[in-house]
């Protein structure tokens, strides 16, 4: 396993400015484009990003505005089932594609606005975890010895806790809120990247060209970030994409437990949590936010799988 791996990694080193290296990235891109699941995932994510950015323009209502007392709205509004004009709902009535929630707010608008919160938490927490985690891993792998041991044992301890439990504990200490949930998810995700980065460093640092650089007296920083990091990028990107999905799920779980987004913020996990008492009588209130979470996570998972297949030539046998 190790030998072919190392060879491809070697080829991929952009520092050498080898003519093959540029084409390898292009190859990879082509592979991504040919990979059906990656394309599907990318499409889903692209749409979600569009929705997140355009929500203020495409949402029919203000997501935190109660419809009670609003023009055209009469009668018992909370938990009102969806009214879709195309499906025969009277045109007289205001349209609410996914109905109204317990506070008589438009669920569809809340779902659209919720996309921004979920994507933000997913992407930033993972980005944070990658930056901190891979730096730690690079340093640990490159320095070895005591530093390595110290860093990796701390990571082992963090890994010893079921991640959601640790995240719950951290949010309790920091106080509930979407930002703190983001931070907690980032912290529990760090060890995975530290391990990944360290493993890459260990497989690369003994190669001749690195040893040569070192003998020539190149500064550690340049070797680490100029030569070693680029080689470790592929697995980090793949793992990163996959764990955005997990982060979105964890954020929803924290909100579900009341530790994430605080009301009236439109957040899918929190929407589910508020409506969970009404699953038997108003299932639509629970169905749509869950579906939204599922589609988002599915998008990142598909892209992650596709990227892995496309970027890691050793896996291209089937």
């Amino acid at each position: 396993m190790a030998a072919p791996d190392a060879v491809t990694k070697l080829k991929a080193d952009p520092f050498k400015n080898h003519p093959r290296s540029a084409s390898l990235w292009i190859d990879a891109l082509k592979n991504v484009r040919r990979n059906r699941s990656a394309v599907l995932g990318l499409t889903i994510i692209g749409l979600l990003i569009l929705i997140a950015l355009l929500a203020p323009y495409i949402a029919p209502y203000d997501p935190i505005q109660s419809m009670i007392g609003q023009p055209g709205h009469t009668g018992q509004l909370p938990r009102k089932p969806p009214c879709i004009h195309l499906l025969g709902c009277s045109v007289e009535e205001p349209e609410h594609l996914m109905g109204l929630d317990l506070n008589a707010r438009d669920v569809f608008s809340r779902i659209l606005f919720g996309a921004w919160n979920s994507l933000r938490v997913g992407i930033t927490s993972v980005a944070f975890a990658i930056i901190v985690g891979s730096s730690l891993g690079l340093v640990a792998g490159y320095a070895s010895g005591l530093v390595d041991n110290l860093i990796m044992r701390v990571m082992d301890v963090l890994l010893a806790f079921p991640s959601l439990l640790l995240a719950i504990a951290i949010v309790t200490v920091l106080g509930p809120g979407l930002e703190n949930a983001l931070l907690a998810i980032a912290i529990v995700t760090i060890p995975a990247y530290a391990r990944l980065a360290r493993a890459s460093v260990l497989s690369i640092k003994e190669f001749d060209y690195i040893t040569a650089e070192r003998t020539l007296g190149a500064p550690h920083g340049r070797i680490l970030f100029g030569h070693i990091l680029p080689n470790a990028l592929t697995p980090l990107i793949v793992q990163g994409t996959l764990s955005i999905g997990t982060a979105v799920l964890d954020a929803a779980a924290l909100s579900f437990l009341g530790l994430g987004a605080q009301p009236p913020t439109p957040e899918w996990g929190a929407m589910l949590s508020e409506a969970r008492n009404y699953v038997f009588t108003s299932p639509h209130l629970v169905f749509y936010p869950g579906l939204a979470i599922m589609i988002t996570v599915l998008g990142f998972n598909l892209l992650g799988d596709g990227l892995r297949d496309a970027l890691d030539p050793t896996l291209n046998r089937f």
């Binding site: 699941s37 799920l249 929803a252 699953v279 038997f280 979470i293 599922m294 589609i295 599915l298």
Partner: peptide
């Protein structure tokens, strides 16, 4: 399988309770 990995556990639980309970 991909959809299965992407589902929030608590949502799945609620949906199962709804389907099998109601």
């Amino acid at each position: 399988a991909n959809i299965g990995v992407s589902m929030p556990v608590f949502w799945l639980g609620l949906m199962l309770a709804y389907i099998f309970g109601v």
